[in-house]
Amino acid sequence: MRFLRRTLLCALSAAAVLGAATPANAAAVNPVTASPYLYSWGRTINPVDVMRQTGVKSFTLAFILSDGGCNPKWDGTQELSSKSALINQIRAAGGEIVPSFGGWSGTKLGDRCSSASALAGAYQKVIDAFRLTAIDIDIENTEFHNPASQDKVLGALKIVKDRNPGVRTVITMGTAKSGPDADGQRLIRRARELGSTVDVWTLMPFNFGGGNMVNDTISAVDNLRSRLSSTFGYSAADAYRRSGISSMNGKTDQNETVTAANFTSMRDYATRNHLGRFTFWATNRDFGNCGAAGSNCSGINQGTYEFTRITAGYTG
């Protein structure tokens, strides 16, 4: 995302055996639909406690980056196994996870891997390690603005889909109030040209520099829906199901304010149109009355885990 995503992850859990076991009920949990972001720096969060308090069933774990080459690590520094214990805990409680590749800061796999096939191999390593049913590509900064990196990401996702038909793919990207900007439009167009099927295109509708956050979010997603329909030939209903919202709770990087009431209105809009994904950044800052906005605090008056609870109520 933005300034909150420029801080690097720190260790959260001890190393465990690579390849977190999947409980029998995990297959019933869709980790894409309502999956707030959870990261490992800032305020320490026990995800199982959050699940019990809010009813949320899945988390988007951020971020997987390059270790300097074409090898995936958490934050680019921690072995994949360092999150196995955490993932096992979430699954044992009846939940599921989707890892997020990318974010604003750090070295991106899409920039460092030499080809789409090499990048697909990096994605596959994570899929195999955790027996995943979905991955999120949070394409920002250098990956997003570099056409070659965009094409590698899309080519890699095509390979991943061919190898793992049951794995859902999500692309998360920034947006203008009027929908995807020029880079976002290119990404969508190239997905069609390269034959890369993306299950859900998710927008981050904030950092607009002010305005009505609900109306601007609706405008952005409505225009995304229109572009998906015109590019791929989807019906309006199908295009909405392939669209998503990834908002930000409280104060955004540009000091906009997303209140719990705003977020509820966004959820109601998502429900009316059956969007494929509804989430926010991030559970770690889902606290109010705690000072200025940052990695530990939303910067507004809100209830503890209020945005997570709103997200948990979304079923598509």
Rank of each mutant, 00 (worst) to 15 (best):
S40K: 07
A85P: 01
R52W: 03
A15G: 14
N30P: 13
G68M: 08
G110H: 00
A26M: 07
R91T: 02
Q89W: 04
I87Q: 08
F101Q: 03
G95H: 11
Q78C: 06
A28R: 13
G42L: 14
D111G: 00
S100P: 06
P99T: 05
R43F: 08
I90K: 01
C70A: 04
K73F: 08
F101D: 00
I45G: 09
N30K: 09
V98M: 15
S114I: 00
P36C: 10
P31N: 09
S84Y: 09
K83M: 14
G69M: 01
G69C: 00
L18F: 06
A34M: 11
N25D: 12
N30L: 09
G95F: 04
S100G: 08
G102V: 06
P99C: 05
R91D: 01
I45W: 12
A15C: 11
M51V: 13
I87V: 15
A62K: 02
A16R: 05
I90L: 01
V48Y: 11
S40E: 08
N25I: 07
G42D: 07
V17I: 13
P72A: 03
F101K: 02
A20I: 09
T77M: 12
L80F: 10
G68A: 03
W41D: 13
S81C: 04
Q78H: 14
P99H: 03
V56L: 13
R112T: 15
A62W: 14
Q89Y: 04
Q89C: 01
S58K: 08
P47A: 06
G55P: 14
S40P: 01
D111L: 01
A62Q: 07
W74R: 02
R52M: 11
I45E: 12
A15F: 03
T107L: 00
S115P: 02
A20V: 06
V48T: 13
N88V: 07
K108C: 00
A24C: 02
F101N: 02
G94N: 08
N71C: 02
G76P: 12
E79T: 14
A20F: 09
V56W: 11
T33M: 10
G19M: 12
T107Y: 01
N25Q: 12
L86E: 15
L109Q: 00
S58C: 09
I64L: 15
F59S: 11
S105M: 03
L61H: 10
K83A: 12
A28V: 05
G55R: 11
G110P: 00
A14N: 14
V32M: 11
I45L: 13
K73M: 12
P99I: 04
D67T: 06
R91Q: 04
T44E: 15
G19L: 09
S115V: 07
R112F: 02
